[in-house]
């Protein structure tokens, strides 16, 4: 096994682990906003890591370049999606979970 394959294998393992953490967070965290936290951060980094491992494994041929371009697209899609979901949930009257300590957004809504 040469160097590129080793690095790409390590990146795939990291990516799968982070996706797993994201999924665990989705189940364990209390309310919709906290669940979005784990769904955007861990899952995006995990998937980016897997895509990057594709680039390292195959080099700059078509499949690698496509994987590289998918990273910014995924980045913008997940951040904009998280924003839209969080805002939509708030507008529909979903309260912050019981552990919350501060809510500045309430003044704007009322």
């Amino acid at each position: 096994m040469n160097l590129a394959e080793t690095i790409s294998l390590i990146l795939i393992i990291i990516g799968v682990l982070f996706n797993l953490f994201g999924a665990i967070g989705l189940v364990r965290l209390p309310d919709v906003y906290n669940r979005l936290q784990s769904a955007t951060k861990c899952v995006t980094l995990g998937t980016c890591s897997i895509l990057l491992s594709l680039l390292i494994r195959f080099g700059f041929i078509d499949i690698g370049v496509k994987a590289l371009i998918a990273i910014p697209i995924l980045f913008f899609a997940s951040t904009v999606g998280a924003h839209a979901l969080a805002r939509g949930a708030y507008k529909n009257g979903i309260e912050l979970g019981g552990k919350s300590v501060k809510d500045d957004y309430k003044e704007v809504e009322s």
Partner: peptide, 13 residues
């Protein structure tokens, strides 16, 4: 996420 006690203190600032 993994920590058993889940040390979170969420809020909107």
């Amino acid at each position: 996420v993994i920590h058993p006690a889940m040390p979170i203190k969420p809020g909107i600032v």
